[in-house]
């Protein structure tokens, strides 16, 4: 029983209720960091950890939090983890910290964090909330990585900074700029919704076959 719920959450956050293409959360960072795979990886890892740990902490103390200050406490706890990540990066991964610069602080503006805290951690057990936060982050990561692969490949001709495209390749400037993420995110949403609609239609078909 427990196991099936864990799996259900995983599937929900990665596919049926993906934060990017279904809930449309965390779009700002999708636009900002996806022109470069390395930044995307660190950013999405940061979001995954902050959401997982934040959700777990908030779930553990949910019975103590008065309704009136619920949101304030949520912001406090989430920003705590974001600042912690920033401090740790600065001390132990100075290069990455320098590269990401303001983006680490911007994790807190990611709607997924508050979204999971409000929608899930409030009503569930700490471990399950941790899992929910983590898988939400992974669902976010999967989409961002897909977009970043296209943008870095066409925009710079590289992947993770390694040259992939041949010498004469003309880079697509628009892929480096934020607007291209709009196109690509929209295409991902379109693809996913189509896929889900097709599957839903298929699942319905056997029972309602006669009516169609």
């Amino acid at each position: 029983m427990k196991n099936s719920k864990t799996l259900a959450i995983l599937k929900d956050n990665l596919w049926t209720n993906n934060p990017i293409f279904i809930q449309i959360l965390g779009i700002c960072s999708t636009l900002a960091v996806t022109n470069n795979l390395r930044n995307t990886v660190v950013m999405t890892l940061g979001v995954s950890f902050a959401t997982a740990l934040g959700s777990m902490t908030l779930s553990a103390m949910k019975d103590l939090i008065p309704r009136k200050v619920r949101m304030i406490i949520q912001v406090l706890v989430l920003s705590f983890f974001v600042i912690l990540i920033d401090i740790l990066l600065r001390a132990y991964l100075p290069e990455v910290s320098k590269q990401l610069g303001p983006y680490v602080g911007l994790i807190i503006t990611n709607c997924i964090l508050m979204g999971r805290a409000e929608a899930f951690a409030q009503a569930n057990k700490p471990l399950l909330s941790f899992w929910d936060g983590l898988t939400s982050g992974l669902g976010y990561m999967a989409v961002l990585l897909a977009i970043a692969v296209v943008r870095e490949l066409l925009g710079f001709g590289t992947l993770f900074g390694l040259r992939i495209m041949p010498e004469g390749f003309v880079t697509w400037t628009i892929m480096i700029m934020a607007p291209s993420a709009f196109f690509l995110a929209a295409m991902v949403m379109w693809w996913a919704k189509n896929k889900q609609a097709a599957r839903a239609a298929k699942a319905k078909a056997p029972t309602q076959g006669g009516k169609a």
Binding site: V170, W172, T173, I174, M175, M177
Partner: peptide, 10 residues
């Protein structure tokens, strides 16, 4: 516009 922005120099 898509190609003018993408390949401005070209």
């Amino acid at each position: 516009l898509f190609v003018y922005i993408s390949f401005a120099a070209l």
